[in-house]
Amino acid sequence: MKTKEKKALCIMSGGMDSTLSAYMMRDEGYEIIALHFNYSQLTQNKELECFDAICKDLGVKERYNLDLDFFSKIGASALIDKGIEVQTSGIEDGIPSTYVPFRNGIFLSIATAIAEKEGASTISIGVVEEDGSGYPDCTDTFIKSMQNSINLGTKDETALEIKMPLVHLSKSQIVQASLELKVPLELTWSCYKNETKACGVCDSCRLRLRGFKLAGISDPIAYE
């Protein structure tokens, strides 16, 4: 009898962290179901381009690309509202202007519905506490609480596990792990502001560049 293939629903932004998480799931033997969100972020087109390229490299057969236009109506984040400045002064105390209200909670809720429909046993999300910079929805504690909640609200046989393999890693460790798994980092995008050449000064670019520097290699994407 043929063994039923295990499936992982991978939330993938096109960034380095969620991409590595998806490759880790593949390395563990999961069939990857890819999920991407367009939520009116400043780099929406670039992120989608990266997502498509990464899915092709991964050989993903099933992918979901969903539009969430309500985030633009809520605003309240520099990633969405052009009237709010994207931080370029480095990581500061408090929650950064780039925090999108309850974004990961919403993403995980939608991912749960798809995972249940697809018969997946696992949801993968590339949250990193260092990268979260104070985001309350990027913590180990929050993700574990979401796992408990979604299993209370789904069928008994669904029994989903949310995997967050990078949550306690540094950016340099993420770069090294990506190299070991031959993740195509040149296909990923981290910049909060630009879609052609990365700005190099937003918090996300700073963290990424520092990670590559500490890992002792050059970042393969272009910067201004």
Rank of each mutant, 00 (worst) to 15 (best):
M24R: 09
L209S: 02
M164S: 15
A22E: 01
A177M: 14
R206A: 14
A53E: 12
K193I: 15
E129F: 05
K2N: 03
T158R: 08
I114H: 05
G29K: 06
A113V: 12
G75F: 03
I106V: 13
S170A: 11
T19Y: 01
T154M: 09
S13D: 04
E157P: 00
M24A: 01
S89G: 13
C55T: 08
T196I: 14
P101L: 11
S18M: 03
E85D: 13
G153R: 07
L35W: 07
E224I: 13
I95W: 02
A198I: 10
P220E: 06
A22C: 02
V175M: 12
I125H: 02
V128I: 15
I11N: 02
E49R: 06
L42H: 10
I123D: 12
D131A: 12
S40I: 02
I95S: 03
D219N: 11
A111R: 00
V201H: 13
I54S: 03
P96K: 05
T122W: 01
M12K: 00
K82M: 08
Y223A: 03
D57W: 06
T88P: 01
T188V: 07
C50Q: 10
I123G: 10
L152S: 10
S121R: 12
V127K: 07
I32P: 00
D67G: 00
G105T: 09
I221M: 04
T139C: 09
N194V: 02
F142M: 12
G15D: 02
G90L: 08
L9T: 05
S133M: 15
Q147S: 11
H168S: 15
G75R: 02
S121E: 15
I114Y: 07
E157Q: 12
A78Q: 05
A159Q: 13
N194P: 06
A222L: 06
M1T: 09
I217G: 08
E161T: 15
S40K: 12
Q44F: 04
Y30F: 14
T154D: 09
K171C: 12
E47D: 07
S97E: 11
M16S: 05
C50D: 03
D69T: 04
D17G: 01
K6L: 06
G126H: 00
I32D: 00
S40E: 09
A115H: 10
A111T: 06
D93K: 10
K182F: 07
Y99R: 07
S18Y: 04
D219Y: 06
N148F: 15
R63W: 04
P96S: 05
T154G: 10
T19W: 01
F51D: 08
C138N: 14
E116Q: 14
I33C: 03
T139K: 11
